[in-house]
């Protein structure tokens, strides 16, 4: 098909099947080299196909009949998976209080950022319009999930590494916030660093996925970059807010009301 004007080129089913040649080539290579992973490659390709077909139909259905309850349900499901994913990713054991803090920070930070973005920046009307709400929500939640995973892991490990240092500050009269300031700042920095780095490389080292997608679907590049800039701000805001909440509230789970550190620091 000719790439006329700005219309999207359709991919007929037959041509899509041709794309699977890549998988066959990979399987052949894996097999000939005796790497022994051909089953995994096939499973991955099949899973991806099934999952995308499924989500394609779901989105089609949702887009056709937008409903606030369904949009919110999807937001809830995304949050649930994201929070589960954080617990699975973090290699250290989290206390129940810390898990609650992770859940609260994720929910409060992403929901605030998402609604601010959709209503104030995009001006979405109606607010639950799923074609915007779901992909943008996914990006905001996904990036915040990465931020919180890094933040909570760093926070927990740093406090465990040298609780005596925190206690030494308490001994001099520091409040819990003062005593944990360097740990908290470091955790915050580690968590937002990937977002900052991705902004630095954007447009030169790589073209971000959303912008690429929009350009492929015929959107004027100048409009696509506006969306990309806006979403990056939304992501930065959400990552910053969720991680800030996590660090601030997370620190509190380590102290009781007598401002005593609840980690054994005696040597």
């Amino acid at each position: 098909m000719e790439a006329a004007n700005d219309a999207v080129i359709d991919i007929p089913l037959i041509q899509l099947i041709i794309a699977y040649v890549f998988v066959l080539v990979l399987v052949a290579i894996v097999k000939s080299q005796n790497i022994g992973r051909e089953k995994q490659v096939l499973i991955a390709a099949t899973r991806m196909t099934l999952q995308l077909v499924l989500i394609g139909f779901v989105l089609e259905y949702i887009f056709e009949a937008p409903h606030p309850a369904i949009t919110l349900l999807i937001l809830l499901v995304m949050q649930g998976f994201a929070i589960q994913n954080i617990f699975a990713r973090v290699s250290t054991k989290l206390s129940f209080d810390m898990k609650k803090t992770v859940g609260f920070s994720m929910a409060a930070g992403t929901i605030f950022s998402l609604f601010f973005f959709l209503l104030a920046v995009i001006g979405l009307d109606p607010w639950y319009y799923p074609r915007y709400f779901i992909p943008i929500g996914g990006m905001i939640i996904g990036n915040s999930m990465t931020g919180i995973s890094l933040g909570v892991e760093h926070l927990v490990n740093e406090i465990k590494k040298d609780p005596a240092r925190i206690e030494n500050a308490l001994m001099l009269g520091a409040s819990p916030t003062q005593a944990t300031r360097s740990v908290a700042n470091q955790a915050f920095y580690n968590a937002v660093l990937p977002t900052i780095n991705s902004m630095i490389g954007m447009g030169i080292i790589f073209l971000p996925g959303m912008m690429t997608g929009q350009i492929l679907s015929g959107v004027d590049p100048l409009l696509a970059i506006r969306y990309q800039i806006a979403i990056m701000m939304g992501i930065l805001g959400s990552v910053t807010l969720t991680v800030f909440l996590l660090v601030r509230l997370g620190i509190r789970t380590y102290f009781n009301d007598r401002m005593q550190l609840q980690v054994d620091a005696e040597e």
């Binding site: 040298d162 005596a164 240092r165 206690e167 030494n168 500050a169 308490l170 001994m171 001099l172 009269g173 409040s175 007598r258 401002m259 005593q260 040597e267």
Partner: peptide, 23 residues
Amino acid sequence: LESYPPLELREKVKMLAQNPRML
């Protein structure tokens, strides 16, 4: 002891650990 606000108490009573940490 517990009737003092913690920071007020730590203002009056301060401690030096055996292996002090540099801050």
